[in-house]
Design a protein around this nucleic acid. Structure first.
Lengths: 295, 295
DNA sequence: ACTTGTTATAGAGAGGATTTATATCAGAAA
DNA sequence: TTTCTGATATAAATCCTCTCTATAACAAGT
């Protein structure tokens, strides 16, 4: 006969109480049921687990040994169920997110703060990497959500546009003259350009914009952080291509000036990428983003 | 809905194989059963344990966590069942026995040797103590079997007479004269007596024997081991009351002589005491004794 | 002897687990 | 596209195990 793991639950109670009738009460069953289960367990194991006394039962040596193991086993199950309970109360768990570049500061951090305030027990892990790598991690389940520039064409992933990012060219004081009136693409191509490293989404979008007008550009300065681009622009090395939100302060302080282009610059859309099936914890995280950026 | 521990067994297999159909085969059930069980478990826990993919299922984060605990839990149960299996093959277990005094050497040791040869993996624990203490230990289940002088009046214990122990008085060379012909009780009472400490069964049996004939004896030497009694007798201090089997050698060597009493000396019966319900391992031990001493 | 508290057994019944059959779905292949 | 394959999900009937009620059996204390 096959052992039913549920019998051990009954056995464990009886082993503590050493009285079938009272165990039955505790288990919300009748005494014959308990008697029957213990009997089955004993027969299946081929060994006596209890002595039957006139005033209850008593564990045999072998029963004692078994009880120790069974106790540990159910303790594991108990802990597991407790953990899941915590998880459901958002008192446990982690969210693993990925973002590329400077998007984090502008879009992710504010919501992250809100999330962390609301669910302080949930651990947050943030990975900064290329769009490609982030997408792959999400596909294999290593990351729960990614924040990248669209378009991303992955049919198996859920992609939600969050926010439009307007880019612009900014220059330092020595080029302020150029900001007085709209600039042609031709004139722009003659200025030294400060761009993100090739391979970045922003870079290729800009290259596409020039190419559609018959220009093939090369970067005079090729850097891999927005902060660096802005720093070089301020010092007058040329025009940096950066998100508008990043240089509001510097423009107001008069350290940088924005160049109006005759032909509108490309607008990038920032999106959140998740798997269609997400983990319990990551669900509430992504929901918070969707609420924050819902029109 | 209440969680059935048996579901976890199914969950564990599925968590390893990540394919319901193949898990079903391994579990000797059908795919819908497995699907149903997993669904119930997920509903009971209120959390998704697997993602359903087109080519199987995949553990969620939460499922992974659960699987780790469940794995440990069933490992415990597996070990427990293995142990019991060993026990049943007499490859594991222990027998705890008690005996008082010198009985051990004569009666217990030979069978103990045989037992140990046959079941070398079973641990033997031997306690030497007073009859009273041994009986109490057996009643509370701390000892499996006891070897003591009968009668023992304990209705809840199983008492089996094993062997009759014939006692006799022995004397050293200076008293050899007395061994030529049967001795009267009167004469015996005049010789210095070497007896076991009062409180021992043997001692009280002898006191009873004298008392029934109107004598109240006192020991001239009161020792608590048979070896000592015999040693003192050999040196001529008086007559020692000891089991016949203990002085065969010395009589043949002419160092001791046995006194024939006119009135026959009391014969003590050595018995084995066990609880009516015994442990699995101790059963085969006591059976060996019963076989060895069966008429 | 009677009462009390216990486990064991028998038999009926209920309900959950299992199966069969089928639907559904996602990918891969034609 | 359409079809085919390999997977899970669902529905409904069946089966079987567990559970209950009722009662027996038993030991211990009154």
């Amino acid at each position: 006969m096959h052992i039913n793991a549920e019998w051990y639950r009954v056995f464990l109670v009886v082993s503590k109480i050493e009285n079938l009738s009272r165990s039955a009460e505790k288990l919300h069953m009748t005494q014959p049921s308990v008697s029957y289960i213990i009997k089955q367990l004993e027969e299946s194991l081929g060994i006596a687990l209890f002595e039957r006394l006139s005033k209850g039962v008593r564990l045999t040596q072998e029963g004692k040994m078994l009880a120790e193991y069974v106790e540990k086993a159910f303790q594991q199950l108990f802990v597991a169920e407790s953990q899941i309970h915590l998880l459901k109360q958002y008192k446990l768990g982690d969210v693993r997110i990925g973002a590329n570049g400077a998007i984090i500061k502008d879009v992710v951090l504010p919501i992250l703060d809100e999330f962390h305030n609301q669910y302080p027990d949930i651990r947050i892990r943030l990975l900064q990497d290329k769009t490609k790598a982030i997408i792959d991690f999400i596909k294999e389940g290593t990351l729960d959500a990614g924040f990248v520039y669209l378009p991303v064409k992955e049919p198996e992933l859920a992609i939600t546009p969050l926010k439009e990012v307007h880019n612009c060219f900014v220059v330092g004081r020595n080029f302020f003259e150029l900001s007085k009136q709209p600039i042609t693409t031709d004139r722009l191509a003659q200025i030294p350009l400060l761009l993100l490293s090739s391979g970045s989404t922003t870079r290729s979008v800009l290259e596409g914009w020039f190419a559609s007008q018959g220009y093939s550009i090369k970067a005079d300065f090729e850097l891999n952080s927005l902060d660096m681009l802005i720093e070089f622009a301020k010092r007058g090395y040329g025009a940096a291509f950066v998100p508008e939100s990043f240089i509001q302060d510097e423009i107001e302080l008069g350290k940088l000036a924005k160049l109006d282009t005759l032909k509108p610059l490309p607008i990038q859309t920032l999106g959140m990428v998740t798997r269609n099936k997400t983990t319990f914890t990551s669900d509430i995280f992504t929901k918070m983003f969707l609420n924050a950026y819902a029109e």
